[in-house]
Nucleic acid binder design. Structure first.
Lengths: 143, 143
DNA sequence: TTCAATTTAATTGAACTCAATCTATTATAA
DNA sequence: TTATAATAGATTGAGTTCAATTAAATTGAA
């Protein structure tokens, strides 16, 4: 017990959060590879599967990602034919992004993935719920 | 409520984990910038502040990072004069890494950081403890 | 002993992430 | 109206991150 204990890896909260996030994303990769998506592309498509269309700005807000990350992700999804990008006519600063039929079709493949990942990462429902709530609380605090 | 609900961002556990980890690392950055470290370099130095020396292999195991990540991180820390890299004489496959006096000296600067970050991300002690335990449990499950 | 398997790092290439900066567009205030 | 500020995206550069591959050293089995 000394004044440097706060610098031990075992006493950190950020480190297991960071390690856990990377490990869990890795669990998705073999399943995502089958539908030719990266994790970042997958969560982006989630927004479109739910909403159909969305401005790049709104997308970045939802995903906590800035334009430096979103721009290449959106370009690559468009290249795959899953979305279409176009400037808003009402406000040309806005990039309006819309899902294509091909993008919609991918949803029926993607829907299997959450269950497959959950199967290899089973937490007690209680514990999963607590984790979910704490993470959202933390996201709120840090916003 | 339909069969696609599992694809909504709000029903994911991985997404808030991933977003939270990135947001929290960002909170460290202004403080880490003052001692010219990135977050990855910082957690690497934590191991050396605690242990003094460590093989690259052991380091990767502790940090959940592979050689593709560790190699450039260790090279950059060596370039800053914080550590020294050398092959083990007993087994030349092993890269033995050791902290320098300059690296040790940095510890007295770094020790302020956890408290500064904790101050902007205050969770109830109970909740922090629960989060800590669940994350370590998850890391175990996924190992 | 000897050769095949294993282990450890390094390398490569693709993708992500972010801070900082730049450009174009829109909003606002004098 | 006209200058100024604010906003949305794109770009750039540094640093991760990982999968896959390679090379060198060591281990272990025949």
């Amino acid at each position: 017990m000394d004044e440097f204990d706060c610098l031990k890896l075992d006493n950190q909260l950020c480190f297991p959060l960071y390690a856990c996030a990377r490990s869990l994303v890795k669990k998705y990769n073999p399943y995502l590879a089958k539908i030719d998506l990266t994790y970042t592309q997958y969560i982006t498509m989630m927004v479109f599967w739910e909403k159909g269309k969305c401005s790049a700005k709104e997308l970045g807000d939802k995903l906590y990602l800035d334009s430096g990350t979103m721009t290449p992700v959106l370009k690559s999804l468009e290249k795959k034919g899953l979305i279409k990008r176009a400037r808003s006519e009402a406000d040309e600063r806005l990039l309006m992004v819309e899902i294509t039929a091909k993008g919609q079709a991918l949803k029926t493949e993607a829907v299997k993935i959450p269950g497959q990942v959950a199967a290899c990462v089973a937490l007690e429902p209680e514990e999963a719920k607590g984790l979910y709530q704490t993470l959202h609380k933390l996201l709120d605090i840090m916003r």
